[in-house]
Design a protein around this nucleic acid. Structure first.
Lengths: 210, 210, 210, 210
DNA sequence: TATGAATGAGTCTTCATTCAT
DNA sequence: TATGAATGAAGACTCATTCAT
């Protein structure tokens, strides 16, 4: 509305970025709703308000958007985890509390989890994609594992399985619950994940430390 | 009816049954490998050694095979559970031991779990299929929940969540792990599931019985 | 129910004839409703209560039923015309009255006319069928032309066109009206045909017959 | 806009229009030759020199081309009739002369009439198409009826049937004759239609106009 | 950068017909 | 005669991708 900005609402670069952004968001929506194979580029472009050509001006192929989504997914998860990991020195009570927050975040966006599943499924089917995917996955698994390991450590308990293994299991639990949630069921993923976590801790042997 | 013709007639019925069986098996393989949407009827028929028409002589549509697979899945899972549930009077140790067997069975066939995921995904996308799917799912959830409830009961503990909820979570865990296993990782689903279960039990409050 | 007849309700030959008859009738219905190309043998056989094989036990091909229908059509039309032609000696009033009856018969069964159109359309597309069709058509045209010629003759008038040409025109009129009637409009074919006929007669030059 | 680019840009638009035009013309040919159901999109596209995809870039479905043909048919017939109707003040001799020209025009293109029949047949079978078809048909019937009514009026005679009914009959006659003409017979539709019209007039009662 | 017409392979499904029973 | 599973070709339509503008 202000005289200066109104005239040239978006610079060329901004407009291009907007195009790309809208295409990415629309692609995510449709991949989640219909699956990677079930979402067509025509639909993505049209729903975002552009032509198919616009899509190919921004991405080299269908898989290319999925890679972009993967990168964003990775970044977002890394951000989540960095909060959890910044507690290196904190006490265990505080860690559990923050894990609680993290778990309840999982529920917020079922789409987010469904995208994770689509990425995983596509990695099972495309060699090129699998390579990229593996990197992200391994890192996430490693870092979440570290958090879990620290937690057990702080509590003076021995994890019943290798921490990375436990991390993978929590992610599996979260994905599997997202899959169910899509259908009908009310959402209790975060609460369940914490229940499982507390159970594991309770059952873990005390370290013969000292 | 006569001894001579009976052999021939049977071989014809057998041949038809064989056709159907091979199509079903091939469909399952391809659904698991490429997803429901990614598996084409042409591929299914050809890989099974038949024409596309043969497929439509046996199934009314692509979704129809998936329904058949759903029915078989249901039957198999029901069989699994009925073994677990036949322990009504048994002691808790025995129940845990049998759950151990059941959990390790889950790993044996990753395909089986992936099919489960494909079924769930397709139910999220097809109204017609969702109706049928829901029935199977609810029943399975209910029965597994009952087993879990009994187990806590025998041990004199209060489940930290409604047993049906816990059942769903164990299934989610198992499906999520199957998704991961497809890619690369070695298989430890059963062991993890039991670790989680024992943890839950350990952490459960004792019943104020008596 | 009576002990003797109930047991063997239809002799083998009767039963076979019935099968054939039902297939023919169903084929006619579906050809009229969906067109020759739009009616499938599967549908015909199923709607008649038989298998596809039964169809091929009675007819050598899809066109073969159409030929059978053509033959019946021919026979029925011949019967109609033979009534009109039996009036050789009658006076013109009597002939017009009978033509009136004939014309009103046309309305009775729009299906009948639509079948005529289907036959004509198929004759335009199949060489083999065209040959058979031409015979029937020419004969019908000739005989109806003869009736018309006689009528003008009795009335001492000269037909404005060759009688066979007029016959063809009346058949065209009747078919064209049937085509319209299928959609929505009420039926007035017979009345219109007679209006046209009376007009032609009124406009015809008187014969200079001395 | 600049003289140099304008030529190129136009030639692109022209090229697109040409594609569409060729597809439409080829569709018309094949609909007439094989019927709507008998003409495949593959054949239409190939015969026009394009891929099937090109067809779907220009039309949303098979029925969509038929609708385009219907619109053109309507436009052409409206043009024909507007010539006939511009004679409001003219004398009856002049009107008959123009009707003569109109009638002989009908013969010129048998394809045009066959298309009319295909349109009518398809309207009998497709709800969606029927709605569009009805509009065109009703308007044409109404306008031709008006011309016929005027003609009788000028001649001081009472039409033997409601003018719209007579209009429908003339169209039926013309369509029915086109059907026959496809097979073998020489063309005399226009002459016959005029013979029928003159007959109707001759037979019509004089108005008791004082 | 963005357009969208055009491509060619691929989708699910239906067809007329054959053949072992 | 009658069955219906199986065939192979063809049906309408969709897709990811290319390319001239």
């Amino acid at each position: 509305m202000s005289p200066t900005t109104a005239r040239k609402r978006l610079s060329r670069e901004e407009s291009q970025a907007q195009t790309r952004e809208r295409l990415i968001e629309t692609a995510q929506q449709l991949f989640v709703a219909n699956g990677y194979g079930g979402a067509s580029i025509r639909d993505i472009a049209n729903k975002a308000g552009y032509s198919q050509g616009a899509f190919y001006s921004n991405f080299s192929s269908k898989e290319d958007v999925l890679l972009e989504l993967l990168r964003r997914h990775m970044a977002a998860e890394a951000a989540q985890l960095s909060r959890l990991m910044s507690n290196d020195g904190r006490d265990s009570e505080r860690m559990l509390a923050e894990l609680d927050v993290w778990a309840s975040t999982l529920n917020q966006d079922a789409d987010w989890c469904m995208l994770s599943i689509e990425l995983q499924l596509h990695a099972n089917r495309s060699k090129t994609f699998a390579a990229e995917y593996q990197k992200v996955w391994d890192q996430h698994r490693f870092e979440l594992g570290r958090v879990i390991g620290q937690l057990f450590n702080k509590l003076g308990r021995v994890p019943p399985e290798e921490p990375g293994e436990l991390a993978a299991a929590f992610m599996a639990l979260s994905h599997g619950l997202a899959l169910q949630r899509m259908s009908t069921r009310p959402d209790s993923s975060g609460r369940l994940i914490m229940a499982f976590l507390r159970g594991l801790i309770a059952n873990a042997e005390r370290e013969n430390a000292e």
